[in-house]
Write a protein that binds this DNA or RNA. Structure first.
Length: 418
RNA sequence: CGGGGUGUAGCAUAGUGGUAGUGUACUCGGUUUGGGACCGAGCGGUCCGGGUUCGAUUCCCGGCUCCCCGACCA
């Protein structure tokens, strides 16, 4: 893509209404636009990052046999009334609206009930199980106080998955597979080193529920981490009996701010019972389905990465989720020969399938470099008059600042491994 | 939802009961061209409603907005 055609612009000034580093950087670099408190639009660059993360999750979900679908944003009041969760006393984040035709609808803050209800149409027998489905959905939650930029919004994108099994044994198979898939996602997104499966409260049918927490100063949760054991304990369940249960001592744990980037739940048969989702077993009895639910906050993950991977000059995207792999920056564009040379490289990158943002603007070097640093694309390739004379490009690794002068062939060998 | 603060141009800010200033961005002209360059010229603004006043961007009341602390976060 040509930067001259990218409609977004960078800005030097930090937005006055953002304190969170993630929002400051993402807005300054033109990845997101704030519509109102806790509600952000994803602009072309931010959209690309979001899609990269979604694709990683999609691949990992597909790998464990989950099937993608998409539920609705508008939800049926009756379904939630059945489980006693339509009431604002029970769920305090509802957005609700009146239908002009009469009656009420809810805006989806979760899809547990609707999806369980829907599955009544498709699950009738033990032969229909197990099945796992997932979706990427915009969740709407009427938070009393949005904060931390994109990390806690009123509207956000979540991947939520739901498993349906005949019983606990089968459920555990998918539950454990999800744990692995989740850790794969965090590794691939670039936060694997700092993400831990975390024991938390809220397990209705087990002693703990499992969260995935990433070490992050801006995180809202306080947890106790053991890097050696690869686990963390949410402070809400941090007590002697938990320590004993997990076989860890307080001395091997470090108190840390963390951001919840995922959580998984075991619903047992309760949820299915509430919504009336049953299957016929081998002897013809109706049995409630054993359900699990699995969530990853996609847009929150973007915020966490922005918080963790940035410096005083701007964002520093991990290669796996960067909007582009290469930022080709043309200098001395007033010189037609240099400009044509850079154009040729741009075309070659595209031919070779390298995702490249081409700064073909007629701007001064300082401005281009500052923008490039702010955007945080992993590799900057500088095409200049000097380089053209020497027959090399300056390749700068954003994360480390390492500078290499490579010939065209060396550069292709580097960026196009096949 | 309780408490505190905030609102001036696209963005960031200053100031004042009497014609609202600066930076940046943008437009035009010129000089520049490896770290947000310089000179000149321009476009563009007081959250909404009410009150006090000859006159309100300023003071008062109400609303809304955004931010922070707390509570909440299945």
């Amino acid at each position: 893509m040509r930067q001259s055609q990218l409609f977004t612009k960078t800005r030097k000034e930090i937005p006055a209404d953002e304190v969170a580093k993630n929002a400051q950087l993402l807005i300054r670099a033109g990845y997101i636009y704030k519509e109102m408190a806790g509600v952000y639009a994803y602009l072309p660059l931010g959209m690309k990052v979001q899609e990269k993360i979604k694709q990683i999750i999609r691949e990992e979900m597909n790998a464990v046999g989950a099937q993608e679908l998409i539920m609705t944003a508008l939800q049926n009041k009756q379904i939630w009334e059945q489980t006693g969760r339509w009431d604002d006393e029970a769920v305090d984040v509802w957005f609700k609206s009146e239908l002009k035709a009469g009656g009420e609808v809810g805006f989806g803050w979760s899809h547990e009930e609707p999806i369980g209800n829907m599955m009544k149409n498709y699950i009738a027998s033990y032969k229909d199980l197990p099945v796992t489905v997932y979706q990427f959905q915009t969740k709407l939650r009427n938070e009393l106080r949005a904060k931390s930029g994109v990390m806690r919004g009123r509207e956000f994108v979540m991947k939520d998955a739901y498993s349906f099994s005949v019983g606990e044994e089968d459920h555990n198979i998918i539950y454990e597979a999800m744990k692995v898939a989740y850790m794969n996602v965090y590794k691939r997104v670039g936060v694997g080193e700092d993400t831990f499966i975390t024991f938390a409260s809220g397990g209705a049918f087990t002693e703990f529920s499992h969260e995935f927490q990433t070490i992050c100063d801006a995180g809202e949760d306080i947890c106790y981490v053991s890097r050696e054991k690869g686990i963390a304990i949410n402070e809400e369940v941090m007590n002697p009996s938990t320590l004993k249960e997990l076989g860890v001592t307080e001395s091997e744990l470090v108190k840390t701010n963390m951001a919840e980037v995922g959580n998984i739940f075991n619903f047992g048969r309760q949820k299915a019972e509430d919504v009336g989702l049953t299957y016929k077993n081998e002897t013809g009895e109706d049995v409630p389905v054993w359900m699990g639910s699995y969530g990853i906050g996609v847009t929150r993950l973007i915020g966490v990465v922005a918080e963790k991977f940035s410096d005083d000059k701007g964002l520093v995207w991990p290669e796996s989720i960067a909007p582009f792999k290469v930022h080709l920056v043309a200098l001395n564009t007033e010189d037609a020969e240099v400009r044509d040379w850079a154009e040729g490289i741009f075309a070659a990158f595209k031919d070779k399938g390298v995702e490249v943002l081409f700064d073909d603007r007629d701007a001064r070097p300082g401005e281009k470099f500052a923008d490039s640093d702010l955007l945080g694309i992993p590799y900057r390739v500088v095409a200049s008059r000097k380089g053209r004379e020497a027959g090399t490009f300056e390749v700068v690794t954003r994360a480390t600042g390492e500078i290499r002068n490579l010939t065209e062939e060396e550069m292709y060998a580097d960026f196009c491994p096949e």
